[in-house]
Design a binder for these strands. Structure first.
Lengths: 299, 299
DNA sequence: CCTGTCTCGATACGGTGTACGAGCAGGAAC
DNA sequence: GTTCCTGCTCGTACACCGTATCGAGACAGG
């Protein structure tokens, strides 16, 4: 589908790529004027707004800079930061992400649509697309927002305690934002500064425990995966609870069939567990302890 | 959206619940005729097809049985199995799930739509809804199909080896069906016979290692979560690879910005890792070893 | 004032899941 | 033999999604 949001196939990206190519070739030197919106439009056979979008993207990436009343000019590669998002009344990426996070916290990720975010923001739907590249990008921004909101635990003390604190911190984030697990599983791994800070802290703690740098990084990913896997379970649990509240009867019906299934297909080991108090916090604690035991044992 | 497919709120469920209530009350005894489709439709103010669907659901659940040319009749509770899905030319739930699995294996879960499944099956779209309850139900069926296709490793030998084999088997399933992780994270935990078989085997192996039944079940969930968390990573990796193939240029561009991000936001510990060969199989092995070390250590 | 440039927002497109109800084949009853 | 009435089939329609496109307006320079 066209709404698949497979980033990289959009017409504006083709224009961006072409211009970037001309810049790195030297065909366009720093200071040179880049073709105007209209020129780009006829040159590439696209709509004006598409060309305008391409220019915006180039500017946000730091390739060109906009000189008011003149046009866009190739930026100096040494020219410092990739242009701060223009301040002023216009909402920033962070603002939009923050609003979307609030919305998702209340209603979940499924009902989060661009239209709804825009409405909550008080702007027309399509105006969002000047601030974020699309829904995927918005979700990445939300993830970044959430992880940026979490303070890192102290980087001192015993390594084991630091690792535990870091995992717990992430787990708390998932408790607060149940959509997070689903969002992480849906999005590609993006380079999010806030996520990198967590990775950095965890790797630093692991240095005291694991010598081999590759194994160290492996274990970092393994721990993260464990936390996220548990978070997925948590999200599912919360969903189920929400459903129970709405429709207790149906749930009860499913419950009986669940028990029936368990009786029919579950073997002796499953039955031997008996009455099991399902408490994800305890499960998380137990699992994390085991995992960290295993990590520290190899030192 | 109305297609949110929150199971349990459908009008047909209300009808089902009402009829079930009348049956358990004794208002409708075994052998009694249940109201006809049309009668149900006017009684509950729903469409004919909704009423028909309700009857189908009741029959599949074994509450009633259809006497051709007469109507539906309350089934004898002792009457054995909940009615085999009628054999013959009509495709069964398993058939549909199998086709959907093939489709998802090739094209991924995102492009899997009811229309596409129906087309691949050669039936009209809406005919699927007589076989599965909706897309969520179809996905659950797909999960069940996949797990049912996997043979369980031998239930003998050292517990540690059995646990490892079980985790590996699940991991292999995720390698073969990259959509599986996403499907599991999206769906509620359903009582799937095939999944229960895995749980049973894992619990049996854990019995030799963990005495406390609650801790044992906790660790079972923890191990499963770890595997699934790693599988999510795997799915993301495969997605990224697919994108690279299609659009190497864009990916290269993202790569530079990724490295830039890493340089800017990554701390010393991240840099000290140096060149890291990203290989999820090795990461999985390392992580699993650590986790199982931690599990067996507490014995 | 004109004119080239940028900004904005409505509209439209192609997709989704699924509720709905008109039409159908065929045995039962008259 | 006709007329009901059954359950079944499936084409249509709805509400919603993400987002590309484009026309109309804002604004500064000449």
């Amino acid at each position: 589908m066209p709404g698949q949001s497979a980033q990289g196939e959009l017409p504006s990206d083709r224009v961006v790529a072409a211009l970037r190519a001309r810049i790195v070739d030297g065909g366009l030197a720093p200071g040179d004027r880049v073709p105007s919106t209209r020129a780009l439009a006829v040159e590439h056979g696209v709509a004006l707004s598409t060309a305008a979008r391409a220019l915006t993207l180039l500017r946000d990436a730091g390739w060109v800079r906009t000189v008011p009343r003149v046009g866009s000019v190739v930026a100096d590669p040494r020219g410092g930061e990739p242009v701060r998002p223009r301040r002023g009344g216009t909402p920033t990426r962070e603002d939009v992400a923050a609003v979307a996070v609030e919305l998702a916290d209340v209603d979940g990720l499924v009902t989060l649509s661009m239209r709804r975010v825009a409405a909550a923001f008080g702007v027309p739907t399509m105006s969002l697309y000047r601030i974020v590249r699309g829904k995927d990008d918005l979700v990445v921004g939300m993830i970044d927002t959430v992880f940026a909101s979490a303070a890192l635990p102290a980087g001192t003390g015993p390594a084991r305690a630091r690792l535990e604190a870091l995992a717990r911190r992430q787990w708390r984030l998932h408790r607060r934002h149940p959509w997070l697990a689903r969002a992480l599983s849906l999005s590609r791994p993006q380079a999010s500064p806030a996520l990198l800070r967590f990775a950095e802290a965890e790797l630093a703690a692991l240095e005291a425990v694991v010598d081999d740098p590759i194994t160290r990084f492996d274990l970092h990913i393994a721990i993260t995966s464990f936390v996220r896997g548990m978070a997925v379970e948590l999200a599912a649990e919360l969903d189920a609870e929400a459903d129970t509240g709405i429709d207790a009867d149906t749930w009860a019906g499913q419950d009986t069939t669940l028990h029936e299934h368990l009786r029919r297909h579950g073997g002796p080991a499953l039955r031997r567990v008996g009455d099991y108090p399902f408490d994800l916090q305890r499960i998380f604690d137990t699992g994390l302890r085991a995992l960290l035991d295993g990590v520290t044992i190899s030192s």
